Amino acid sequence: MKERGILAYFHTEEQAKKAADELKRHGVENVQVDRFSVFPSTEERDLDNPIAEPLSSLAQNVMDAYISSPDAGVLASAHPSASGMADGSGWQTDEDVLVTAVVEESRLEEMRALLESMGARL
């Protein structure tokens, strides 16, 4: 029996967990929920004193992103989550929760449709 992987992106962890539970209810055994970020993890340092330990960028201060260089700081700070500069269409929310599932190839379209009906972007 051939198997295929599905990657489904969600805005909230709650949506993703509901979708994962629904996949399991439909007999899918290999399901995993993960959160990820477009920015690297935070650097292990104490930022209690911004004078002694100046911030490298706006993104480090606002989004707690680890910034590796001044250029990376400028690029990360341009993200709407840091700068606040958006198109006026409401709050920027990332699809940063991923549901990964391995399904039988014969049930692939059925499971994709199920995930899309629950708000996933495939």
Results as ranks from 00 to 15, higher is better:
residue 7 L to H: 14
residue 37 S to R: 12
residue 37 S to I: 10
residue 11 H to L: 04
residue 1 M to K: 14
residue 97 V to L: 04
residue 114 L to N: 00
residue 50 P to K: 00
residue 35 R to W: 04
residue 109 E to T: 09
residue 34 D to M: 14
residue 68 S to D: 15
residue 122 L to N: 02
residue 83 S to T: 03
residue 110 E to L: 05
residue 53 E to W: 03
residue 32 Q to R: 13
residue 109 E to V: 06
residue 18 K to A: 09
residue 23 L to S: 01
residue 113 A to D: 13
residue 29 E to N: 12
residue 74 V to C: 05
residue 113 A to V: 04
residue 32 Q to D: 09
residue 62 V to M: 14
residue 121 R to P: 00
residue 60 Q to P: 02
residue 100 T to P: 02
residue 121 R to S: 05
residue 81 S to Y: 08
residue 55 L to S: 10
residue 111 M to P: 00
residue 26 H to C: 07
residue 34 D to N: 14
residue 21 D to N: 12
residue 17 K to P: 10
residue 97 V to F: 01
residue 114 L to C: 01
residue 98 L to V: 05
residue 26 H to W: 07
residue 16 A to E: 00
residue 86 A to H: 09
residue 14 E to S: 14
residue 13 E to S: 12
residue 46 D to K: 02
residue 57 S to P: 01
residue 82 A to W: 00
residue 36 F to N: 10
residue 111 M to K: 00
residue 44 E to S: 08
residue 67 I to Y: 00
residue 1 M to H: 13
residue 77 S to Y: 06
residue 119 G to T: 02
residue 71 D to F: 12
residue 2 K to V: 06
residue 95 E to Y: 15
residue 98 L to C: 02
residue 69 S to D: 13
residue 78 A to E: 09
residue 29 E to Q: 15
residue 86 A to W: 08
residue 6 I to P: 00
residue 43 E to S: 11
residue 38 V to N: 07
residue 37 S to H: 08
residue 95 E to R: 15
residue 30 N to F: 06
residue 71 D to C: 05
residue 121 R to K: 07
residue 2 K to R: 14
residue 34 D to P: 03
residue 58 L to K: 13
residue 99 V to E: 00
residue 51 I to H: 09
residue 26 H to D: 03
residue 98 L to N: 02
residue 7 L to Y: 15
residue 51 I to A: 13
residue 104 E to V: 04
residue 6 I to C: 12
residue 64 D to W: 06
residue 101 A to L: 01
residue 4 R to Y: 10
residue 55 L to M: 14
residue 77 S to V: 08
residue 68 S to T: 13
residue 47 L to M: 15
residue 26 H to A: 09
residue 100 T to Y: 05
residue 1 M to I: 03
residue 87 D to N: 14
residue 111 M to E: 03
residue 74 V to A: 09
residue 88 G to W: 07
residue 81 S to D: 09
residue 64 D to F: 09
residue 47 L to C: 10
residue 5 G to F: 13
residue 36 F to T: 11
residue 100 T to I: 05
residue 7 L to S: 15
residue 50 P to Y: 02
residue 24 K to H: 01
